[in-house]
Simulated assay, not measured.
Amino acid sequence: MYALILTPARAEQVRKAVKEHGEVVFDQAGTMDSLGIRNALQSAARVAADALILDIDAGPGPDLVAAVQGYRISRPTVRVILLAPGREPGDATVASLVGLGVYDVISGPFRDDWGDLVAQALNRVPATYAQAARWHIMTGLTGEEQVKEKVVIEQRPVGVVTIAVAGAASGLGCTHTALAISAFLARQGHNVALVEDSQEPVMKDYLKIIKADAGRVNKARRIKRFDVFPFAKTEVDKFIEGDGNNFIFDELLPELSAGRYEYIVRDLGVADKKRTREAFRSNLAVLVASAARWRWGDLLKIEPLASFRLALVAPAEREVREIRRIPELKVYVMPHHPDPLCMPDEELAELLRPVLPQAKKKSSFWPWKRLWSNCD
């Protein structure tokens, strides 16, 4: 399935090419201003597409980059194919988009057959940073070419990382685990936001009781060096009264983009079908479950279970061994800790390993233990 944001000059050629490869689920053509390109990408983010084909001339360069960053927050795994007619390495807009993980860059003269160029790209596997690296340079005032943020891209996940936390059943500690993950990432010096999309929201009252400070951006409150966006029924009545497919996360895209967060943690509540689908929009999906045999039925309802990293809270050793015999399951043990904001770091670091910066994965755990002790 494909989403298209194109200029009129190339729209018809690209549409014909894409329809031979799959279904077009979002299509907008025009040369837009700042508000227009932002709204277009926000609308595209609400559609479950496999790839977004984006014309670089559809909006002003800096505004296009900011809008793509917001799209990346919502759809971090979608392949973005950038049409860049007439652009050459050193172009600031293309370099910025490559920095957001846009590696499929199609360039060429304006008069080329862009339908054919897109068809060739769709027949290839998605590009990697190695193929896009020549675009990730900017010409400085002296005329010398400089690689932009190359070290950062090689050592840490590109763009905003989203982590979804869901529970196999109610009361197992989904919110507790989401808070623990957020606090852990904040202790490592990252800019973190926690978004509450649970069926049984509790954060609004909790933040009021502890008198949390104002967050970095509108609608956010701040605790332990990270921002929390509590569920607020009055702002998303569609979630309550509509078809149930709207989430706070989608409503908050402008604020999440403005906050420039490195990690966004989503507390999804109990993993029903739509929340499981939301979890797989993220870079990492965590399922909080019980290891007790009489709760194994909760796991049978989750499909596909193997796509989650399974977090078992304070399980018995024997039960952990039995669950780990199930093929393809990725099982992690979370210790019981009454305060999620001070949970030990070792287990959380292992659970989050795929989305942690490489440089920090090599660090000793001793400083993390010292940080944890300061929570007491």
Rank of each mutant, 00 (worst) to 15 (best):
K301N: 07
F110T: 08
A289S: 08
A193G: 06
Y261R: 00
D197K: 04
S43K: 11
L82M: 07
R325G: 06
S290R: 04
Q120T: 13
I223L: 11
S290G: 07
V147I: 13
M203C: 07
L284I: 04
G30L: 05
V80I: 15
G167F: 01
R353M: 15
G215L: 09
C342P: 04
D345S: 15
A169P: 03
A51W: 08
G215W: 05
D227V: 01
A11K: 01
P344I: 03
T139R: 13
S307C: 10
A49H: 14
E145I: 10
Q13T: 02
L310A: 05
A183R: 05
K361Q: 15
A29M: 05
V151S: 14
E255N: 10
H336A: 11
L252K: 00
E241H: 13
R111C: 10
V286S: 02
I37K: 00
A3C: 09
Q131S: 14
K150Y: 12
E346A: 15
I56G: 03
H337M: 06
P335Y: 05
G22D: 01
P109M: 12
T175Y: 02
I210Q: 02
A186Y: 01
K150T: 12
G259H: 07
A359L: 11
V355C: 06
F365L: 14
P340S: 04
P62T: 08
Q199L: 14
A220S: 10
T142A: 13
V161Y: 06
Q69R: 15
G244E: 00
V78A: 09
E322F: 12
A178P: 05
A232E: 15
R309K: 14
L4G: 03
A212W: 04
F280D: 00
L371T: 05
G90I: 06
P126M: 08
A44T: 03
L122N: 01
K19S: 12
L287M: 03
F249G: 01
T162W: 06
E317N: 09
E149M: 13
E196Y: 02
L35C: 10
L141Q: 10
Q131C: 09
E88L: 09
K224N: 15
A9K: 10
A58H: 02
M138T: 11
A58M: 07
F239P: 09
A133P: 00
S198T: 12
A40F: 00
E23C: 05
R72K: 15
D55F: 13
I163P: 02
R295D: 13
K273N: 09
A121N: 00
K19D: 07
E145Q: 15
E235H: 11
N246D: 12
L356C: 03
L41S: 01
L172G: 02
A92V: 13
R295Q: 09
A258T: 07
Y332P: 08
I326E: 04
Q188M: 13
K19C: 07
R325Y: 10
K150M: 15
V78W: 06
A67S: 12
A291E: 04
A178E: 01
D298N: 08
M138N: 06
G269Q: 02
E350I: 13
D33F: 08
A316I: 08
Y332G: 06
A186R: 00
N245Y: 12
E149R: 15
A258I: 09
R281F: 11
D63R: 14
E262N: 07
